[in-house]
């Protein structure tokens, strides 16, 4: 990168930094996420209700985006639930995984470790038997770690 390009990018970075909070509210969507939701669930993010009875546990800071531990639990009875999805808004491919659930699970519970390219919202979305979608959202900040 030459100096001029670098300066231009720096300027952009400043603008991006300044505007970012306005352009991207904490729970806002991204075009990539909307595409994936449309393709896999057939809904828009705005149609999915944020609910308190889904618990999404993830670190607030991840010192490595290569391996972010997440756990999804819910007190919604298992026989009312059909399917679970995990998305990371800003990943190149926001879809991480999805799980078909049955009453034999006994409970909504799924834990894994995921990759995150940068700081982003993580979302756990449940499809209920009545056809509706509910979700929990948690922001994970991806930072560089210490010595390696």
């Amino acid at each position: 990168m030459d100096r001029r390009k670098f300066m231009a990018l720096s300027a952009l970075a400043v603008v991006g930094f300044t505007l970012a909070p306005i352009l991207q509210p904490a729970f806002g969507s991204t075009p990539r996420l909307e595409d994936e939701l449309q393709r896999r669930l057939g809904v828009r993010l705005a149609q999915i209700k944020e609910v308190a009875d889904i618990k999404l546990t993830a670190p607030t800071i991840a010192e490595s985006g290569a391996n972010v531990p997440i756990t999804v639990e819910s007190t919604i009875p298992i026989d009312r639930v059909e399917h679970l999805w995990v998305f990371v808004d800003k990943n190149p491919v926001p879809w991480i995984a999805d799980v078909k659930l049955t009453p034999m699970n006994g409970q909504v519970y799924f834990s894994t470790r995921i990759k995150m390219g940068e700081t982003s919202n993580v979302r756990a979305i449940l499809k209920l038997k009545d056809g509706s979608y509910v979700m929990a959202t948690k922001e994970v900040k991806v930072t560089a770690g210490g010595c390696g």
Binding site: A13, G16, P92, G117, E118, T119, K141, G148
Partner: peptide, 28 residues
């Protein structure tokens, strides 16, 4: 090589760079 994995995920370098700069600043 070790950083390559992460680099892959910040593809679209400019956007990625911007957003992580922002994230970094927020954390700090």
């Amino acid at each position: 090589k070790k950083k390559a994995v992460l680099a892959l995920f910040t593809a679209g370098a400019v956007t990625g760079g911007l957003l992580s700069t922002k994230a970094f600043a927020q954390v700090e």
